[in-house]
Design a protein around this nucleic acid. Sequence first.
DNA 1: CTCGAACGATACAGACCTGTCTATATCGAG
DNA 2: CTCGATATAGACAGGTCTGTATCGTTCGAG
Lengths: 208, 208
Amino acid sequence: MMHIGRMDAPVMSKTLSPNTAADALAPRERVLQTAMNLFYKHGVHSVGVDRIIAESGVAKMTFYRHFPSKARLISAYLAAKDETWQQLVARFTGDTSQSAFDRLLSLFDALEFAIIDPGFYGCPFIKALAEFGPERDEPQVRAQIHAHFAATEKLVNELLKQIEPRNAKTLVQPFLSLITGTLVVAQATGGVEVARQNKEVARMLLSR
Amino acid sequence: MMHIGRMDAPVMSKTLSPNTAADALAPRERVLQTAMNLFYKHGVHSVGVDRIIAESGVAKMTFYRHFPSKARLISAYLAAKDETWQQLVARFTGDTSQSAFDRLLSLFDALEFAIIDPGFYGCPFIKALAEFGPERDEPQVRAQIHAHFAATEKLVNELLKQIEPRNAKTLVQPFLSLITGTLVVAQATGGVEVARQNKEVARMLLSR
DNA sequence: CTCGAACGATACAGACCTGTCTATATCGAG
DNA sequence: CTCGATATAGACAGGTCTGTATCGTTCGAG
C-alpha cells in the first residue's frame, strides 16, 4: 500500500565508478526522474511514454520492464511526490518539543519553502485531482490522491485538537483551504509572498 | 478581448416551433453544451473532438465550421464558464446598496451555491490551470485563465479597500487563497460545509 | 568460459487524435 | 424555381498513443 515501485532496485548494476556524471543513474531512476519533471510540468495526460522514453535515453522494453503500464508510472510519480512532501512536512512540523501552535504555523514555512523553488508549478496532487475527474478508471491513482489529502487533513486536525480542542472541528477545513489556496494562488500568480501572508492569517485565527 | 465566441449566433435557424425537446438546439449550441459537460468532467485533454462530435449528434464539418480548431472550442468553453461565474458573483455581491463587508462575505454564499450543485466537479479554471502548464503554446487559453483570476482578485481587492484600507494589501491574497481553497477542498472531499465555515473565518478576519 | 539477465535499438500493431475532403440533402431568400 | 448557405454522412490523411515483438550486445555470476 505504501510502496508502488519495485523492490529489486538495481540502482547500480554497472558503472561501479561513476562514468560521466549525468547518465550514470540506473535506467529505472532515469525514467522516473524524467517522468517526474515532465508529468509535473505538463500534466500526466499531455506527456506520452514515448517522450519519457526518448528523453530518459532508455529502450522501450526497459521502460516496460520497470513500469508495466503508464498508470503504474503515474503511481510511482505520485508516490515519489508524496514522499518528498511528507519529508518536507516532517522537517518543518515534526519537532514535537515545540508547541502545536508553532508546529502548525511552521506548515506555512514549508509551503513557502516549496513555492520559492524555481521549479514550483503548483501542487502535484491538486493538478492530478484536476486531471483525474470522477471517472471510474484508474482507481489506484485516485486512491493515492485522496490518501494524500487525507494525510494532510489528519495532521492539521491533530495539531488543531491540541491548540483549540473546542473549535478544531470548524477550523480543519478552513486551514486546509488556506493551505491548498496558498499553493493555487502561488501557482497562478507566480508570487511567493502569499505563504507568509497566510501564515499571519493563520496566526490571527489561532489567537482570537 | 471579452467575447471569444462568434457573433453571428444562428441560435434558431430552423425549427421555429420546438420539435422534440432535446436536440432542438442549433448545432453550435449542441456542440458547446456537450463540450461544456465533457471538458469540465473529464478535462480538456482527455476528451477528443470525435467524442464531442459523436455525442452532440453533429457532422464533423459542421463542428469545424463553428470551431476552426479544438483550441477555439476550449476558449469558448472557458468563456462560457467565466460568464456564468461572473453572473453568479454579480448576483451575490452586486448589490451596491449593501456594505462592502456584507458583499465580500456574500462571495462565500456564491461559492456554496456553486458547490452544492450535484454537477460540481471543482473550479474549471483551477483545473485548466493544471492542464495548461507553463508551456508557450495556447497563449489564448492561458490568457483567459489569468484574466479570470485577475478579475476575481480585482473584485476582492476593491471590496477590501472599502472595508479595511490599511490592511487591504496583505489581505487580498489570503482571501483569494480562502476562495480557491474552498473550491479545491470541496472538490476533493465532496463536502459542502467548507463554504460556510470559510465564510465565518472570513468574518473573523474582517472583524478583528 | 558460459549462461542468463538486463539493456539498447527498432519495427510493428491497433487504436485514437486533429483536421480535410467529397458528396448529398434541406431550406429560406430572392 | 433557383441559388446559396447550412446541415448530414462518411472516407481519408498523417500523426501520436500505448503496448508488444525481434534482434543484438554487454556484463556479472557461477
